[in-house]
Design a protein around this nucleic acid. Sequence first.
RNA 1: GCCGCCGUGGUGGAAUUGGCAGACGCGCCGGACUCAAAAUCCGGUGGUAGUGAUACCGUGUCGGUUCGACUCCGACCGGCGGCACCA
Length: 805
Amino acid sequence: MDFRAIEQKWNKIWEETGAHRFDQTKTDKKYYVLEMFSYPSGSNLHIGHWYNYGPADTFARFKKMQGYNVFQPMGFDAFGLPAENYAIKTGIHPKDSTMKNIAVMEKQLANMGAMFDWDHELVTCSPEYYKWTQWLFLKLYEKGLAYEKQAPVNWCTSCNTVIANEQVVNGVCERCGHTVVRKNMTQWFLKITDYAEELLSCIDSLDWPEKTKAMQKNWIGKSEGGEAVFPLENSDEKITVFTTRADTLMGVSYVVLAPEHRLVDIITTPEQKEEVEAYKLAASKASDVDRLSSTKEKTGVFTGAYCLHPITGKRVQVWIADYCLSTYGTGAVMGVPSHDDRDFDFANKYNLPITRVIKGENGNDDLPFTEHGIVVNSGEFDGLTTAEAKKAVLKKLESLGLGGVKINYRLRDWSVSRQRYWGAPIPIIHCDHCGAVPVPEKDLPVELPYDVNFTPDGQSPLKKCKEFMETTCPVCGRKALRDPDTLDTFVCSSWYYLRYIDNKNSDKPFDSELANKVAPVDKYIGGAEHACMHLLYSRFIAKALRDMGYINFGEPFTSLVHQGLILGADGEKMSKSKGNVVNPDSYINEYGSDIFRMYLMFGFAFAEGGAWNDDGIKAIYRFAERVERIVSVGANAGSDDNYGPAEKELDYALNYAIKHVTADLENLSFNTALARIMELVNALNKYAEKNVPGAFFRKACMGLVKLIAPFAPHIAEELNELMGEKGTVFCDFPSVDESKLVKDEIEYGVQVNSKIKTKMVLSTSLDSAQITEIIKSDDKIKEILDGKEIKKIIVIPKRLINIIV
RNA sequence: GCCGCCGUGGUGGAAUUGGCAGACGCGCCGGACUCAAAAUCCGGUGGUAGUGAUACCGUGUCGGUUCGACUCCGACCGGCGGCACCA
């Protein structure tokens, strides 16, 4: 059989019959299988695409055969930096290169033979799509979930432009390798922090990899503690600090503000001004690598100001230091050198007092002592444990009106402004009289102009495009300017699974009723690298859309699976520079796509991946040939419907395979599922060798064709036809007949003192007590025991017997 | 440093969640067919000792729980991923 030729034949038939079309009117038994969509890169589909989409399609086909109405769409995440950087390098417009790449990938994806419903395709850079991305932004703005503020951004000193966090690699620009510094710019943010608690608390209910859930939890970083207010001496201002160790409050020897803290300029004394200014300047210039290193020596400057301890009223020095981060908590911390490593270093360096207030319970007297213990030197709190003291101190602060319980999150609001060309324009108009004004919905989309000079020179490329920038204010009608920035591409991908459902709707982003029927996604399959970005953003947007009444669920992806990573043959990540990139095309040309995807599923543990090795691909090819040969025998089998012991044995093998393949596919355990199919093929061969194939053999072969169909869709269709069946093979996944798996007799492992000594075939109708009796009187057992006295017999039904002597 | 995952034959990987470790493949060895080779088919294949039935040892290391541990607990070693001055 020419596996490559039949691929074309069946791809054509599937297209003509609309085999992969999703019927939106039948959503009572729907199943939404989604693979993370592709970025349209210049080269052909790589191993990573195949390893994601091939097995995922196998799962989707399995669900379809089980009778689900399966929705499996595909599209392109088409905005983004690579196309723009490519344009800067070559002069080829991002739109042109992107559309060309999409055309190539569409063709390759179609040849893959996956059951994508191309009627529902979407491309995020098309105005029909980004119109609704802009709509989403406006709705978030209306709801108060989008706001503008000055914030530090990553500024590349060589490219003279802002770059995204993801583009900062080890503190330098990924494109040019030059230093990245922070710069304050006005940016749009989405208020993901409003949902911090819900994003955290809902995680446990999700059927997601534990690893991914843990990453999101860490990223959200809930921290339960309290705030303490230190009033300033000689001023009405107050410093509020956040702490998780309120029990150490009585050990405070100084307070630190972040260099960027609002109060720094207000409280610094004239004598300290010069030193403080110099320190602030140095801190703002420091690159992220320098500043964010925990091993760096602590530095800081005294502001000259004093504040008052909230409980004792004692004078406490106020310092600034860059180990205090302006972006976390209140941007101010209390310094307790005796019980914090950082504070200890700092206090030693600047000769600040160190007072022990926690005693270890087993006499550990070394400082700093960062563990929990018993409070000492703390007046009324002495003798309390750390846990008790935390509560007592915060209660006291609350009664004084100087603090109380507080929860903090590490999660920060999502910065979505990009000073880039190739993205969805932010639908805001800046008017001198009215401020930031949203573009009215009827004027969407704000189209991205084609003729733009996108060479980087420190300005947003759109800013230089007069025709784009100049407009009138929708409120007052006066001249106004558009926002020159574009949206982070993660905004585009945060809601795409909803647009797939209703991709041609020109009145709204999607029909809510329909979306509620088809979504959420039942099985989402894609890489693990998106744990704290795409997957978190999508959850946030779903909750926001739910709260605005557009959908009735808050979690977009009910069940999530990450495929592993296929590495180069050298065990390193594939990259052009390492020269270890494996091109799937040569294998597909030689063996066909069914063989290739089956090999990917058999040769690796799906969630693990591993180093590339093509030793097994020939074996899979031979396996497919064996399948074809045995199915041909089945197709030509006689009509004899004898059902004797040989048939019974084959029936067992068939149902055993059905049972396990079904369970394995459910778990996306493709390698073991294929192993069970191979066993069935071995059983069929064994039968055909010794018996004349008749009606039952034919039936078993048909079962094989059905079982293998999700794995090798084209081959299975061809074999189905060979068997004389009419119509497609993709229906009626076989269901197990448990009665065929009941055995009269079963082999037990017999252990003596937990070591396997012999085997014994026993009837399955015997209960444990009966088996115990048989063991006691069995001659062979007596021989093995050699006169030793039996103390106890443990019988594990259908498995083993352990005789303790 | 913190969080998470992982460690099984020559090799890719299994093991119904505490019950016969190594399923299914690859590779290798032997055989059949062949003048020969390829392809195909059959048999063997964790290690050590022994002609042999068999015995002992074996899931990173060391302990523990248990009739029984790849699986659970404790300590450690090694690898991968994420976060990292988060107060």
